[in-house]
Amino acid sequence: MNKVFIIGLPRTGTTSVSVALLEQGFKVAHIGLTKRAFEVADVVSDVPCFCDYPQLDKLFPHAKFVYVDRPVDAWVNSIQMLLTKMAPNLADKTGTFHPILKRCFKQTFGDLKADDLLDKTRLKQCYLSHQQAVFDYFEGRNDLLTITLNEPDSLQTLLRFIGVSDEAIKRNDTVDFPVLNVGTHVASWGEYKHPNKVNTNLAGPEHRKFFDYQKLGLANYCAN
């Protein structure tokens, strides 16, 4: 099958989408930080997909992309919580998170040490800027699906978009996305056990190297 990349921002429901697709038999990486993770997974979500979708589009020319939308005011409240939890580990020199994760958050949310990092107006603009960039990039194409998880039949719409037959959809009893990472909970993916989960840091022939976009001649489309 063609690759599927989930490019909604964190706290839009990317974990719920990832778990739903695991249950449909797809190999899923929620965050992919190595070439091997991208090679093995059918579906990759979150970091770095929400930032690097133009490069992934070039690397995987037949891929499909799914933008997960959420009412922006509800998203702002949720991302404030997440950034508060993550900020110490996102620091350039002292933070313990992977450099790719740091890069994607910095490119999306700007200066992570800014006094107004959690300002609602600022975060709302980050969300809308990312959304507009996605819509501009995929304008006139048919390989982007936009979904809101609590809308009726959104899971079935997603499955049809990525090539699951109506017969297979009817055979499956699941009709809605699972509700995960509610409130201050952020660890549902790590807690969820499934044989189709793909390790974020999966090693391969080149160990744990990621794609070298410069070497591949792929421009960096992500906003600073």
Rank of each mutant, 00 (worst) to 15 (best):
T34H: 06
T108K: 05
R122P: 00
I100M: 00
D52T: 14
A41V: 07
G13E: 01
K209T: 09
D176L: 15
P195M: 12
K3H: 03
A37V: 09
T200Q: 07
G8H: 08
G32R: 00
T94D: 05
D143L: 06
F105D: 01
D111H: 15
D115P: 04
I7P: 10
L56C: 13
K209W: 10
R11E: 07
F65P: 03
V182W: 04
T15G: 11
D136H: 02
G25M: 12
K124L: 07
P205N: 00
K106H: 06
P61G: 05
A74W: 13
Y137R: 02
T94Y: 15
D115Y: 00
H98K: 03
Y53N: 07
K35P: 06
R11P: 05
K3Q: 09
L202K: 12
N220P: 12
N142M: 09
L149K: 12
D136W: 06
L123W: 11
E191P: 03
A91N: 13
H207C: 14
D173Y: 13
A133N: 07
Q107M: 09
D73S: 14
S165C: 08
T84V: 00
K27M: 05
L82S: 11
N2Y: 14
A91Y: 10
T200N: 04
C222V: 11
I100E: 14
L216Q: 04
I31M: 08
C222A: 15
Q214G: 05
F97L: 13
A223G: 12
F135I: 08
K93P: 06
G163C: 15
E206S: 14
T121E: 07
N181P: 01
G183Q: 09
I169C: 11
F138R: 08
C49F: 00
N201S: 11
Y221D: 09
W75I: 03
Q125W: 13
P10H: 02
T200K: 04
P54W: 08
F109D: 00
V186W: 06
P195E: 00
F211N: 07
N196A: 01
Q80C: 01
Q125Y: 03
K215I: 04
R171I: 09
